[in-house]
């Protein structure tokens, strides 16, 4: 197990290195001159050259890259051109908000989808199953932002229960923060529910026909015990990977959803950075998002081992 974790961490380091290469390459190939963006179209040749020298942009690319990676290793991501603040500080402020949104959405999705999936599987091909499958189909067919708009329309415009958007820090007002969290997290959670539910359902169906389920019934176990104790614990194993994948997907989805709900998280920060050719900020955002993605998948693999006693990574201990 210990060996396995070490190997995985090493693997993640390599991946992260490749991500830095790609992020750096892409942002430098992008058309648009940073100095020009900062100084505006009326800047003189001299002032542009002076600014480029000041920003270090006239050095060879590989020097710029190593400089940047060296900074990354020390937690330094450079200065944002647009905001004039350290990139790390900007991300540190926005990231928790996005995480709050993505984690809440995933929790909502799990809380909804697993019971629904189990219920559908137990009532296979009957009315509840068909209804759940249809719901899942609609959920999968609609993009996340559309769910956002539907939620705003229903809960904010028609019923006026929740605000249409914005963000309040939980330290400022817990209730106010929750109120603003409900709609974006709910919309995203809803979109994620469908897929996890379908996985839960098919996994449950497979497990429910297993021999050990038949034996559990032959031991006099009630339907409740058979489903919840014997079947669900097995069925949930493949679903874990899906949940981790959906969490990563949610994190990608925040870019659009934050825009819809005026949620000042890392998604909107990335958009602003791209619009203003804020290269250090774009790079920082890419790295952080990639890192989150890797960590969530790593966590899924560890959870896998936790739930499935047959998997003990790295052979014998």
């Amino acid at each position: 197990m210990y060996n396995y974790v070490l190997r995985r961490v090493g693997f993640m380091a390599v991946t992260l290195f490749l991500v830095t290469l790609i992020a750096f390459a892409v942002t430098n190939i992008l058309p648009g001159n940073v100095a020009l963006v900062i100084l505006g179209p009326n800047a003189t040749e001299e002032s542009l050259a002076a600014l480029q020298a000041q920003l270090g942009l006239n050095r060879p690319l590989y020097v710029q890259y190593f400089d940047w990676v060296l900074g990354l290793l020390q937690g330094e991501m450079g200065q944002s051109l647009r905001f004039g603040e350290p990139v790390s500080a900007l991300i540190a402020e926005r990231l928790p908000r996005s995480l709050l949104l993505a984690v809440s959405a995933t929790l909502i999705a799990v809380a909804l989808s697993i019971p629904l999936g189990v219920y559908a599987a137990v009532n296979q091909n009957e009315a509840p199953d068909v209804a759940a499958s249809m719901f899942a189909f609609i959920g999968i067919s609609m993009p996340i932002f559309l769910w956002g708009l539907v939620f705003i329309l229903v809960f904010a415009v028609w019923f006026n229960i929740f605000p249409t958007g914005g963000y309040t820090s939980p330290t400022e007002s817990l209730l106010g923060s929750l109120k603003r969290l409900v709609l974006p997290a709910g919309a995203m959670g809803f979109a994620l529910t469908a897929y996890i539910m379908r996985m839960t359902r098919s996994s449950m169906l497979e497990v429910l026909s297993a021999e050990y389920i038949k034996l559990a019934r032959a031991k006099g176990m009630s339907q409740r015990v058979v489903v919840l104790r014997h079947a669900l614990k097995n069925a949930v194993i493949p679903v874990i990977t899906v949940i981790a994948f959906q969490f990563s997907y949610a994190f990608g989805g925040v870019v659009v959803l934050e825009e819809v709900f005026f949620w000042p998280g890392i998604g909107r920060l990335t958009l602003t950075a791209i619009q203003s050719r804020d290269i250090p900020l774009i790079q920082g955002c890419i790295i952080v998002v990639a890192l989150i993605y890797m960590i969530s998948n790593f966590a899924a693999d560890l959870l896998y081992a936790y739930f499935d006693p047959r998997i003990r990574y790295g052979g014998d201990e």
């Binding site: 021999e211 050990y212 038949k214 019934r217 006099g220 014997h230 614990k233 097995n234 194993i237 006693p309």
Partner: peptide, 30 residues
């Protein structure tokens, strides 16, 4: 009655035990 007065011993030892429960749990619950 099942498991108590009439019990079953199934065919396939490889697939008839729940893989995520210890053998103890499976005997004790009965």
């Amino acid at each position: 009655i099942r498991g108590n007065r009439i019990a079953m011993i199934p065919q396939d030892p490889m697939s008839s035990l729940n893989p995520v429960m210890t053998v103890g749990e499976q005997i004790i619950e009965t």
